[in-house]
């Protein structure tokens, strides 16, 4: 039997009883889009995207599109990373696999939400880049270490770019995504035995700083 993973600081008890609250607070994609519809009163609805105010000034839309395309590139990277990991990593621990499965699903959902949002803003979503993750899938440990770097970077990227967003629905979407990136980061940090929340304040990174970190993975 494989080792279940918890934070090394001892799990208390598992009875699944937090699930109800987690389900209540956590949002599925459908919830998210429905909620966006509620918040975006008077906005244009589409089946797949966020609700955006039609009377937005062109300039603010344009700058938000640039930020969203930056986010989309990162989400493509993460999504591709976990999809490949699920095919290639020989998991020796079922909780590490669970992490990869959940996170793969989340990152895919982020890509699927950001693409139509860019289109609604009148922008053109960037193409999915080709990625090269080198030896990241050689074993479970290497995968987890790489995942930790990617998730921490994702958090700092959204935190750095978020303040420049102008469209309310996009701000909401960014906040609801960065929170999930932070959940991932904390989770994977615990799995490798690092402190899940190393600082009282997460350090933001500029787009340039983030792209420099992501670049080695872009073929």
């Amino acid at each position: 039997m494989s080792n279940p993973i918890t934070h090394n600081g001892v799990a208390v008890e598992t009875d699944g009883s937090t699930a109800t609250f987690m389900e209540e607070v956590g949002a599925t994609r459908a919830d998210f889009l429905k909620r966006a519809a509620i918040f975006g009163g008077g906005a244009v609805a589409t089946a797949s995207g966020l609700m955006l105010l039609p009377e937005l000034a062109g300039a603010s839309k344009k700058s938000d599109v640039a930020i969203l395309n930056f986010a989309l590139t990162l989400e493509y990277l993460e999504s591709d990373f976990y999809d490949r990991a699920l095919r290639r990593v020989e998991f020796t621990n079922e909780r590490a696999q669970k992490f990869a499965e959940n996170t793969a699903e989340h990152e895919r959902a982020h890509v699927e939400a950001i693409v139509p949002t860019i289109e609604e803003l009148g922008g053109r979503p960037v193409e999915k880049p080709k990625f090269n993750f080198g030896g990241a899938f050689a074993d479970q440990d290497t995968f987890l270490q790489t995942a930790m770097a990617l998730e921490d970077t994702g958090v700092s990227a959204y935190n750095g770019a978020g303040p420049a967003l102008t469209v309310k629905a996009v701000k909401e979407a960014a906040a609801s995504i960065v929170a999930v990136e932070a959940l991932h980061a904390s989770w994977v940090r615990a799995m490798v035995g690092a402190v899940p929340a190393p600082l009282a304040f997460d350090e933001p990174k500029t787009m340039d700083e983030v792209l420099a970190i992501a670049k080695p993975f872009i073929a």
């Binding site: 799990a11 699944g16 607070v25 991932h184 989770w187 899940p196």
Partner: peptide, 16 residues
């Protein structure tokens, strides 16, 4: 969540 023995992330989007 992890200390409680549950997965760290279940949701794709976090509801504000």
């Amino acid at each position: 969540r992890i200390v409680a023995g549950t997965p760290g992330a279940k949701e794709s989007f976090f509801k504000p």
